[in-house]
């Protein structure tokens, strides 16, 4: 009777050198795949100046509303002397203040956010602008929006019961239209836009 395989499995059936050669080739293939992905990320990150946020800028979360950069009258869109825009938001449970801001297209936008209560996050829909907002620190992100439109900016870090409803809007308008806006039209709520 031919010798049957029962419960011994495949041990001893495949030559050792075949097993080792197969494993070596697979290891080489996987290392190549991982190396390729790493090289792509590093190359594009270096050449396009895409970096994780590395600034550590602290602020007192208890007095944001009383003094300093994030008092209510200073929130929203501010035009700098070099033509760039600084966009300041407060992220708090469960809203961004202001809830809407108007910015010009094709301009350097500097997002500056902080929080008086818990950790939040934000991202500007369909763009790569995405960062955490941590109480006690100022989040600084630079971006440029080429296409006009209304971008939803939800909170993307769980912050409590109302997290799912926490979102702001960033309204990107053509530069010519932006320059015609009065300052109060840029920083007050844009409502249903």
């Amino acid at each position: 009777m031919a010798e049957l395989l029962n419960n011994e499995g495949a041990s001893g059936l495949i030559p050792e050198e075949t097993v080792e050669r197969t494993e070596r080739r697979w290891l080489f293939a996987m290392a190549t795949v991982l190396g390729l992905m790493l090289a792509v990320v590093v190359f594009t990150g270096v050449t396009q100046m895409m970096n994780p946020l590395s600034d550590v800028e602290t602020i007192n979360p208890a007095t944001l509303h009383l003094q300093g950069e994030f008092v209510e009258s200073n929130l929203g869109t501010a035009v700098e002397t070099d033509g760039s825009i600084t966009l300041r938001f407060l992220a708090e449970q469960y809203t961004f203040v202001p809830q809407c801001a108007v910015v010009p297209a094709g301009t350097l936008i500097r997002f500056r956010l902080t929080s008086p209560d818990v950790t939040h996050g934000f991202f500007v829909g369909t763009t790569n602008t995405n960062a955490m907002v941590v109480p006690g620190y100022v989040t600084n992100v630079m971006a440029r929006f080429e296409h006009p439109g209304t971008y939803t900016m939800p909170c993307d870090e769980f912050c409590g019961f109302g997290h799912h409803a926490m979102a702001a809007s960033v309204v990107v308008v053509p530069k010519e239209q932006f320059t015609k806006l009065r300052p109060e039209e840029r920083i007050t709520t844009c409502g249903a836009q």
Binding site: A2, L4, L5, R21, T22, W26
Partner: peptide, 25 residues
């Protein structure tokens, strides 16, 4: 199913797990 013979198993596996490699790759 009936067990296969050792010689049949050796024949099937003599070139290593080519089919599995194709699927995994």
């Amino acid at each position: 199913s009936p067990s296969i013979s050792r010689s049949a198993a050796l024949e099937a596996l003599k070139n290593g797990p080519r089919g599995a490699l194709v699927i995994a790759a």
